[in-house]
Design a protein around this nucleic acid. Structure first.
Lengths: 121, 121
DNA sequence: AGCCGGTTTTACATTTCTTTTACAAGTTAA
DNA sequence: TTAACTTGTAAAAGAAATGTAAAACCGGCT
């Protein structure tokens, strides 16, 4: 069964799950196998928390209880390659795992102000 | 088996017990694990007093007789994160414990006056 | 063998979360 | 009222997770 339209896309990032292609600001992003698998898994579950165990299981085949820092290292490389969007795209959920977030235009409006007031600032 | 409707909601606060999500005035409230567990336990027993022992037992696994101020500290952090509703939501029952109260619109009518007189003030 | 790209480990720094400490402030009972 | 006790609070200490750079490892290649 062939799945069509299997790609993620937002303002800056594009991930083609079929062809293992990633594009950042319309420039190809070269990722290693593990880096791609990790990113793909996170992006496939965009906006949802993916626990460390799940990542370690699905990307590395590690069962729980295996103590390793390789996940963190790969996360770091991904963030680096995502350059200035790295931290925004890949959010760490302390004690749980990571979450990929869709790109959102940064708002200069303080979020604690009601919308109708914010137009002034 | 998926349990539906496992959430609390009032005018300002929303607690999703399933997903560990809390929203204050429709803005996500980031809580640590302990903070969430504490709030969840209180909210789950809304309008009822939850004794300190119970909180310390269910959230920390502490048996009675353990002298600690960590509960108070966490209560404080919760109140702070609930910002201006903190004191209203989390009520202290001296010598017993705490009670979460549903939000009630503050009335500018002195409560010691009969309603029909209050229209003048 | 030696090189090379990819991956993992190591060791330490940093950050985040939790608990304790010490004291202030509030409450109750005598 | 004071004395005993409870809760509030800020700051320090402690514990644990994550970030990071660099070294070590590993398999495929020439």
């Amino acid at each position: 069964m062939v799945q069509h339209n299997s790609l993620y896309r937002d303002e800056h990032l594009e991930v083609d799950f079929q062809r293992n292609l990633v594009t950042l600001d319309s420039a190809a992003l070269v990722l290693t196998r593990k880096e791609f698998e990790l990113l793909a898994l996170l992006v496939a579950n965009a906006c949802e928390i993916v626990p460390r165990d799940v990542l370690l299981m699905r990307v590395w085949g590690y069962s729980r209880e295996i103590r390793t820092r390789t996940l963190d290292v790969h996360i770091r490389r991904l963030r680096k390659k995502l350059s200035r969007y790295g931290d925004q795209y890949i959010e760490t959920i302390f004690g749980v795992g990571y979450r990929f977030q869709r790109y959102r235009e940064p708002s200069r409006i303080p979020s604690y102000l009601p919308t109708f007031m914010a137009t002034v600032a």
